[in-house]
Design a binder for these strands. Structure first.
Length: 498
RNA sequence: UCCAGCGUAGCUCAAUGGUAGAGCGGGUGACUGUUAAUCACUAGGUUACAGGUUCGAGUCCUGUCGCUGGAGCCA
């Protein structure tokens, strides 16, 4: 007998196969039971008729998420999901599950996160994790096929790479160590050996922020290239993002559909991405044209809000016409959902005048805030590069611009649809004296970075790179509201388990 | 860290300061084509915790804890 997977069921049409998996759901009547079997590749309906006495008796004992092996004939059946079903002749339980906590109804975020180890079995998380895998693989394939060497950078480090306030301290024998925030300084060193390198690993930031964009443990891919300027770095970033989006579109239409992702906006992601400087961005923010545009958008959203409220009233009036209790409950749940969406839009609409004012009053020199990024990114339908930020707003290792000493040669890539920054990168300062001066200005201890400064003493070359936050990229590509869904076991300020 | 909201059955939610309830899930039974099947019956509660106000508190007040959303900061 052949064993089959649900994904490949069509190949076995007309044959008797064995399948192993978990019971996703079951409907049974006196003489027939419909088992929905889940095997990690898909879900398929298996019919057990009372004429197959032993199989039928076994099926009746099964509970949600029980593990089992079954055998039966594969046949085409338009009424079944996937187009095929199995007429089971043998049903063998492996373990009959205890009462499973996650029902096929709605649950709250906290409950689901507390049951993340089980929640992973549901179709939505499973779809996201498949897309995550493809995105990670696309990153690796992109670099591997472009002459990059993978360099694993340390996770235990002695010092901050970015901001000292967001380090996780670790007891390292008698010393204090920290969990790495970036592999960049090490990559700079490796790229002086191998030319083009990248690292891919977890990074840790002890930021006390509870938002839909933050994790304390997240994964980052960071390339670093010797003999590269900022334009080269941006071209690389552009190529990588396109490769990722193409890979997901090619492999995961089904998953994106399940997640309710609007695929059309993803299809627009292609080279070249628009590029503006920080100063351009400031001009946009302060322009009269932007103010008018934003007020028009605000007006449209206000109208949308009214529409949603009318829709809500509609639903409420429908309640009276629904007799089935559970259908009423379902309708009520829909109303609650709408109420939540209305509240969210209302908050947004209320915040907007503040954002418009912030933008109009923006002063050159400050870092772009979240609302500013949203304003900029909403003017484009694909990711946009913002370059050349004021040096005070950025890290010490970024190269000072020759044309304008007030700015550094850095770039942020802002994802469209309000997802904000997904990439941060720069050309690095390759001049020893300029770098030392900069470190003094920022009150960094030179001795702590002596090995890093060595790179500027022994054959320094122009070089640069960037970091892509994997979870933010997944969140954008899948159209998710919260990054916590993009990683199997999220670590946030308030969650260390499971 | 700050601001706001919430905490009631396994889950999602109801309940003018006045007898704690529904749907789903669980259990038992009926039913041969179901798609969150349907129908009947049934079990299930220290209303987060600690105080207080009141004849009476799930509801009001104070504190603690937890969660959610937002702000700041960031990938």
């Amino acid at each position: 007998m052949e064993s089959a997977t649900i994904e490949q069921l069509g190949r076995h049409e007309g044959k008797v196969v064995s399948l192993q998996g978990w019971l996703y759901g079951m409907r049974k009547s006196g003489k027939v039971a419909f088992l929905e079997l889940r095997d990690g590749t898909g879900i398929c309906q298996c019919v057990v008729e009372a004429s197959a006495a032993e199989a039928f008796e076994n099926a009746r004992t099964l509970t949600q998420e029980s593990s089992l092996v079954l055998e039966g004939l594969v046949r085409a059946e338009p009424r079944a999901i996937g187009g095929y079903e199995i007429s089971a002749t043998k049903v063998q339980p492996l373990q009959v599950a205890q009462e499973y906590p996650i029902s096929r109804k709605s649950h709250g975020a906290d409950f689901l996160m507390s049951h993340r180890h089980l929640w992973l079995r549901s179709s939505r998380p499973a779809a996201i994790l498949k897309v995550r895998h493809t995105i990670i693989k696309a990153c690796r394939d992109f670099f591997d096929s472009n002459g990059f060497t993978l360099i694993d950078t340390p996770i235990l480090v002695a010092r901050a790479g970015e901001d000292a306030q967001t380090l996780f301290p670790v007891d390292y024998f008698e010393k204090q160590a920290f969990l790495a925030q970036t592999g960049q300084l090490y990559l700079e060193s490796a790229c002086m050996s191998l030319g083009k390198v990248y690292c891919f690993g977890p990074t840790f930031r002890a930021e006390k922020s509870k938002t839909r964009r933050h994790l304390t443990e997240f994964w980052m891919v960071e390339p670093e290239v010797a003999f590269a300027d900022l334009d080269d770095v941006m071209e690389l970033a552009e190529g990588m993002i396109c490769a990722i989006v193409d890979a997901v579109l090619a492999k995961h239409q089904k998953e994106l559909e399940l997640l309710g992702r609007d695929i059309e906006t993803l299809k627009k992601v292609c080279k070249p991405f628009p590029k503006i400087t920080y100063s351009d961005a400031v001009d946009i923010l302060k322009s009269e044209e932007n103010r008018i545009r934003m007020e028009n958008e605000l007006q449209l959203d206000k109208e949308r809000l009214e529409d949603m409220k009318r829709q809500q009233e509609d639903l409420e009036s429908q309640l009276a016409n629904v007799s089935k209790a559970w259908k009423q409950e379902k309708l009520k749940a829909g109303i609650r959902e709408l109420t939540e969406a209305i509240a969210e839009l209302e908050r947004d609409v209320n915040n907007r005048p503040g954002h418009i004012r912030l933008a109009a009053e923006f002063e050159w020199g400050a870092d772009l805030g979240g609302s500013d990024e949203t304003i900029i990114s909403r003017r484009f339908d694909k990711p946009v590069f913002v370059t050349d930020y004021p040096k005070e707003a950025k890290a010490f290792y970024m190269k000072q611009s020759v044309d304008d000493p007030r700015v550094v040669r850095n770039m942020d890539l802002l994802a469209p649809e309000g997802y904000g920054e997904i990439i941060g990168g720069s050309q690095r300062e390759d001049d020893l004296e300029v770098l030392r001066t900069k470190m003094q200005e920022m009150q960094l201890n030179e001795e702590d970075y002596s090995w890093y400064l060595d790179l500027r003493r022994y054959g320094s070359v122009p070089h640069g790179g960037f970091g892509l936050g994997i979870e933010r990229a997944i969140s954008w590509i899948c159209g998710l509201k919260h990054v916590r869904e993009t990683i199997p076991f999220p670590r946030t300020m308030g969650r260390l388990e499971p």
